[in-house]
Amino acid sequence: MNKQRLKAKIIKYFLQSCGSLSIIIVLLIFLFLFKEAFPFIGSPGIGELFHNIWNPVSFQKEEFGLVPLITGSVLVTILATVIAIPFGIIGAVYISEVASAKEREFLKPFIEILAGIPSVVLGFFGLIVIAPFIKDLFGLNTGLTALTGAVLLAFMAIPTIMSISEDAIKSVPAAYKEASLALGASKLETIWKVVVPAALSGIVASVMLGMGRVVGETMTVMMVTGNAPVISMNPFTSVRTMTATIAAEMGEVTIGSDHYMALFWVGIVLMLMTFSLNLISYRVLKKYGMIDK
């Protein structure tokens, strides 16, 4: 009997340690990002990171200013979000409130496919099809622009926005709708004046989760945004995002060099940005009971 109790205890502690693994990994991620980046603070100094020029390989003066990388990421993310929002939200409203059951059965899994396409394949498609299209459409010298990246990233964010917004819309109590319809409002008025406002917090959270995905996306942007580390808010210029910088340059640096450490700082900024976006949306979704605690 005692043996049985001991066995039960061992199993419990074993499972508990597996359960805590997620916490450990998150802590390790922060730990190793900081560990690899830390010596940079002494030399060349943390102030370097706030400069406006990223030029890590140079015979005269190496520059590790993160500003152009951050603005690159921000520009692409904002553009992508602006493009994704109407598709994501209107699509969610259409699927949950307008589409017939049969249509829904087709639309939902089909749009899920988009979430499953590997980012490198999407980037490849962007490079071969979307970039030339944008180049011709706007008469540019190159199709590898912030806008091209944003279009593709928008499509990566759409499945996230759509499915979570749809959940939010579905969780609006039927009584609200019925009350509005009973007052003589049309179905369309009810959708836009009652249902969507009631689901708004969930919809906002879905957009933020979508943004989190976009900020962190690497391969697609690396392949289609042209990778020029310049500070610009013009969608038709080439930009370089934080993610693309890490992916493109990490292969060529010496481990432990200034450049290596600077790339880990890029990782830290990136991690903090996505972490806060996810944290806020998680809180919102939890508050409205869309995630079980």
Binding site: V26, I29, G216, T218, M250, L270, M271, T274, L277, N278
Partner: peptide, 11 residues
């Protein structure tokens, strides 16, 4: 679930 894949790479 929200950590960017490239950060996993760094880690």
């Amino acid at each position: 679930a929200g950590v960017p894949s490239i950060v996993f790479g760094l880690f």
